[in-house]
Amino acid sequence: MQRMRRASTKPELVLRRELHSRGLRFRVNHAGMPGRPDIVFTRARLAVFVDGCFWHRCPFHFVMPKNNRGFWQEKLDRNVVRDREKDEALISAGWRVLHVWEHENPVTAADLIEQLWRERRGVPVRLGEVRS
C-alpha cells in the first residue's frame, strides 16, 4: 500500500488539465486544509476531492475484497468516516466541498466545478460559456 499514489493520480491530472485549459487557476494538495483537498480554489473557497472508487467505496464500482475481509472492512470504514469529518471541518470553515469519483467524465466534472467557481466568485455565467 505504500506504493499507492497519494497525489497526482491519473484522474486528478486529467481533471486538472481540463480546468487549466478553461483558464481556472488553483492550488494542488493544499497542506494547510483538513484532508488536503486535491484541487483548491482559495478565493472561491471551493475544495475538490478526486476519490478513488475502491478507497472511498464508490456506490457503483466498489467490491469488498474476499481475502482478509475484516482488515479491509475496518480500513475502508475509517476512510469513509475520515471523509465525512474533513467535509464537516471544511464546511464549518465556510468552504464548499465537492467530491468527484475517478470514473466520472472529467469534462462533465469540470463543467460543474467551473459553474460552482463562477457562482462563488460572483462571475456571471452567460449562455454558451460553460461547456456541456
Results as ranks from 00 to 15, higher is better:
6 R>K: 08
120 R>P: 08
55 W>H: 09
69 R>N: 05
20 H>Q: 07
102 E>Q: 00
119 E>I: 13
47 A>G: 08
30 H>T: 03
49 F>I: 03
98 L>T: 06
23 G>M: 10
72 W>Y: 07
124 P>S: 15
4 M>F: 04
94 G>W: 01
100 V>A: 02
39 I>M: 06
108 T>F: 07
42 T>Y: 02
64 M>L: 15
97 V>P: 02
47 A>Y: 05
43 R>W: 05
19 L>I: 15
8 S>D: 15
127 L>I: 00
11 P>V: 14
44 A>P: 12
79 N>P: 10
4 M>Y: 05
132 S>N: 00
96 R>D: 01
24 L>D: 13
33 M>N: 04
115 Q>H: 11
129 E>P: 00
51 D>Q: 13
99 H>N: 08
121 R>E: 14
79 N>I: 09
47 A>F: 11
110 A>T: 05
28 V>H: 06
54 F>D: 05
122 G>M: 11
103 H>C: 07
48 V>F: 14
98 L>N: 03
73 Q>C: 11
121 R>D: 14
43 R>N: 12
23 G>I: 12
81 V>W: 04
125 V>G: 10
83 D>A: 08
127 L>K: 06
130 V>I: 14
83 D>W: 03
16 R>P: 07
84 R>N: 10
92 S>H: 05
33 M>I: 01
41 F>N: 03
20 H>N: 15
60 F>L: 12
113 I>L: 14
58 C>H: 14
115 Q>K: 10
